[in-house]
């Protein structure tokens, strides 16, 4: 009985794992197979070819889009880490009038659905002349309320003696945050960093709205418009090649830092 139960358990889990892995496997194989093979592809194509990828490269500026995505995501991650640390530090370690009010505003704005600010934010971009510039892809994302709360929590847990000692040595507040406290909250930095990077890398609605010129398009946006816009000329292989190209950087990062990814994403739910 116990043995039978175990077998059933493993069968179910393996079945589930296949359901999650096989589609990715199929996608990669299909992107490497001749167009005629895809409609009958189950496991491996009759012959491997990179023609889908070369067609993709010749049709869309995918290298440029990869650069844009890396550039925008790195800026957003780096600067939001810095700004959120500063705000989180002030909210947890400094006394000033309005501190609790700001904290309450943060909690309140987190409950605000983005659908209400979407259209006006687009209008702001138009009025600032930021449409079709990197500014529209970065500036609105430099502050992240979730990150502020994470840093506030992390700084709160550190001993006051650490800060006092640094002050006696004549450290300014910014030096204290980035040189004394940061080394002590590495898990939080990793979590916030991964979430910010992934969020920025995978964002597609906002770029679709504020970027029209191909040279500023992010990778997910370019791939979306390529697939929807008909330039892929309904060639499945080429569409799938662009999807693989878009997935590859994150999947590679995931294979290396799998534990960190899972922990970071799980912490989005553990809040409040």
């Amino acid at each position: 009985m116990r043995g039978l139960k175990k077998i059933l358990l493993y069968t179910l889990l393996t079945g589930a794992a296949i359901t999650f892995i096989y589609p990715f496997f199929w996608m990669i194989m299909a992107s490497l197979s001749p167009e005629a093979d895809i409609s009958s592809l189950v496991l491996f194509p009759s012959k491997l070819t990179f023609s889908n990828y070369s067609t993709m490269v010749s049709k869309i500026p995918i290298g440029r889009a990869l650069f844009n995505s890396l550039f925008v995501s790195s800026i957003n991650t780096g600067l939001s880490l810095i700004f959120s640390s500063m705000v989180g530090y002030a909210l947890s370690r400094m006394e000033f009038k309005g501190r609790n009010l700001i904290f309450m505003i943060i909690i309140f704005t987190m409950t605000l659905p983005f659908q209400i600010t979407l259209i006006p934010n687009y209008i702001i971009m138009v009025k600032l002349n930021w449409v079709d510039t990197y500014l529209s892809l970065t500036v609105p994302f430099l502050i992240n309320t979730f990150a502020i709360l994470m840093f506030r929590q992390a700084f709160k847990s550190l001993p006051q003696a650490l800060i006092d000692a640094a002050r006696i040595d004549g450290c300014g507040e910014l030096r204290i945050i980035f040189f004394i406290l940061w080394p002590n909250i590495k898990p939080t930095i990793i979590t916030v960093g991964i979430l910010a990077f992934m969020g920025s890398w995978n964002e597609v609605l906002w770029p679709l709205i504020v970027i029209r010129e191909e040279q500023f398009m992010t990778l997910p946006q370019l791939v979306t418009l390529f697939v929807v816009g008909g330039r892929a000329e309904s060639q499945l292989g080429v569409k799938l090649a662009s999807a693989v190209f878009l997935a590859a950087p994150i999947i590679i990062a995931y294979l290396f830092f799998q534990k960190h990814f899972i922990q970071s994403m799980a912490s989005t739910g553990l809040k409040d």
């Binding site: 889990l13 589930a16 794992a17 999650f20 892995i21 589609p23 990715f24 199929w26 996608m27 299909a30 895809i38 409609s39 009958s40 189950v42 992934m198 890398w201 995978n202 597609v204 997910p220 791939v223 979306t224 697939v227 499945l236 569409k239 799938l240 662009s242 999807a243 693989v244 878009l246 997935a247 994150i250 999947i251 995931y254 799998q258 990814f261 899972i262 994403m265």
Partner: peptide, 30 residues
């Protein structure tokens, strides 16, 4: 198992949609 189940979470919705569009295809979808 955990890592396998989690894989689609990290990937862009664009990738997942393009992939499933093929899986769901009427004529020759998987």
């Amino acid at each position: 198992f955990r890592a396998a189940f989690f894989m689609p979470v990290v990937v862009s919705g664009v990738v997942v949609t393009i992939l499933w569009q093929q899986l769901f295809s009427f004529e020759n979808g998987v």
